[in-house]
């Protein structure tokens, strides 16, 4: 069982076995990266922040309560770091935001040139960049909800634990976020 194995790895890390942390990173890297990407909109920044998330988790592993879900604790670090990063952005961030769409494109244009993609797939890659651009237009608090709910498919209770807000607030934000995206994506 993966769950059991991860629990064991976490115990080992707590006891000072650094190599056991590798298991944890490789298991959660996609989810953590996805949260950061949805919130920051750039692959480069998401990679950077996802790495920082794991480093923080390692350094603070003693403050993780083993009776609680590890993913909740880890995603909280990722969302908090992302929100911090968004807040710290200087005004030139908004300049950046203008070209978020192209940044999204660079993510998908990293596929080797010799690999010919069928038209519809290119379309869907462009589509993904477009969707991300529309997500970036939403306030950060909705972006985190979208990442946690629609990408990592967390339950409302888990989202409430990650973001440390009541379930009722999570619901309201999901509804508003979904409604806002509906308006933005209706013509796609």
């Amino acid at each position: 069982m993966m769950e059991e194995r991860l629990k064991k790895s976490i115990k080992l890390v707590k006891k000072g076995d650094q190599t056991a942390f590798e298991d944890i990173v490789s298991y959660y890297q996609n989810n953590v990266f996805a949260i950061c990407f949805r919130m920051l909109g750039s692959k480069h920044e998401a990679e950077d922040l996802a790495q920082e998330t794991f480093i923080r988790a390692y350094v603070n592993i003693h403050s993780y309560d083993e009776n609680r879900k590890f993913s909740t604790w880890l995603y909280r670090i990722a969302t908090n770091l992302s929100i911090d990063r968004i807040r710290k952005k200087k005004p030139d961030y908004y300049l950046d935001a203008e070209i978020k769409g192209t940044e999204g494109l660079t993510l998908y244009s990293q596929i080797p040139n010799d690999q010919v993609l069928p038209d519809n797939e290119v379309e869907s890659l462009e589509m993904q960049a477009y969707i991300q651009k529309e997500i970036m237009a939403l306030p950060a608090k909705y972006r985190s909800i979208i990442a946690l709910r629609f990408l990592n498919e967390l339950s409302l209770k888990e989202i409430s634990d990650v973001l440390e807000i009541p379930v009722g607030t999570v619901k309201t934000r999901i509804h508003r976020g979904r409604e806002a995206l509906r308006k933005r994506l209706r013509h796609v």
Binding site: Q29, A34, I131, F150, L151, L181
Partner: peptide, 10 residues
């Protein structure tokens, strides 16, 4: 659309 199999990988 937002759930679609996005191949988001580091």
């Amino acid at each position: 659309l937002v759930t679609a199999n996005v191949d988001l990988q580091p």
